[in-house]
């Protein structure tokens, strides 16, 4: 399905944005995720689902190397972004993170005005164009412009939870990334705000590759094109280690999964 929609200009790139090869992730000596293999297609929404502790957020944070901030964490295996090894010495995580935006579980607007929240990332990354234009464009893309256009100087924290989350999406879009990672973006929001964000995701996938971690299976089935189901199993040392159970078209995962675990999980038998 993806191959038909691939952009003809991308010779080697857009088709497979990420390729994860036999990747394990450790916090200190504890293995958190074991042996993940998967590929993320461009301009699609890929959902990561699974019970808590299954490592779906950990894998998500590998894509922009946000896990680097935890001193003891390290990776084994290989993740490539358009064929470039993300964890090779030549890759600068700061540079990488501008290309791979992220939206977090709880809205985390900066203690700045709405305008500055959006402009901040662009400013530090040396945006050369017209800043007002960029702010407006980003706020329009995140479907927030009409609600805030008269109060751009007000604090980002004065907005409601759902608006704050869309502000965070605008903030991520403003640095013109290719990929947007979303870590349970709706878990702190009410149903109406959630619906708005889901609609927004459908618009955004025209221009961006989206990977979303969600606890909410209905959400995964509503918004995503492909779904990866992770599970956790107990380790000998008493901890938990996550692994990828199954990865396929969303409709396959939800209607006709190959694995029993997946079937049990999507039918609500555990998790």
């Amino acid at each position: 399905m993806q191959s038909e929609q691939a952009s003809p200009t991308a010779v080697a790139g857009l088709e497979r944005v990420f390729k994860v090869e036999n990747t394990s992730y450790y916090y200190g000596s504890n293995m958190a995720v074991r042996g993940v293999n998967l590929e993320i297609p461009g301009n699609k929404i890929t959902a990561f689902i699974g019970p808590s502790g299954c490592g779906k957020s950990t894998v998500l944070r590998c894509f922009n190397r946000l896990n680097d901030l935890i001193p003891s964490a390290h990776i084994k295996g290989r993740i490539t972004y358009h064929g470039v090894d993300l964890y090779s010495k030549a890759v600068d995580p700061t540079e990488l993170r501008r290309r791979i935006g992220m939206v977090f579980q709880k809205p985390n607007p900066f203690p700045k005005s709405i305008y500055d929240n959006v402009a901040f990332g662009a400013r530090i990354n040396g945006y050369q164009g017209d800043m007002d234009e960029l702010v407006e464009k980003s706020l329009r893309s995140s479907a927030l412009w009409d609600e805030v256009k008269d109060k751009l100087k007000e604090s980002g924290l004065s907005l409601s939870g759902g608006q704050q989350q869309r502000l965070c999406i605008a903030r991520a879009i403003a640095v013109e990334p290719e990929v947007i990672l979303m870590d349970e973006p709706c878990s702190a929001l009410d149903p109406i705000s959630t619906l708005k964000i889901e609609d927004l995701m459908q618009q955004l996938k025209e221009n961006y590759t989206i990977i979303i971690v969600t606890h909410n299976m209905q959400q995964a089935s509503r918004v995503s094109d492909r779904t990866a189901f992770y599970n956790a199993e107990p380790t000998e040392s008493g901890g938990k280690v996550g692994y990828l159970v199954e990865y396929d078209e969303t409709q396959v995962i939800f209607s006709n999964p190959k694995e029993t675990y997946t079937r049990d999980y999507v039918s609500g038998r555990f998790g």
Partner: peptide, 21 residues
């Protein structure tokens, strides 16, 4: 911590995160 992460995720360096956010 989420505020720091939000800033790093935009491609900010450590100093920019500290002084900017």
């Amino acid at each position: 911590q989420s505020l720091r992460q939000g800033c790093y995720a935009l491609g900010a360096t450590k100093r920019e995160t500290v002084t900017g956010v």
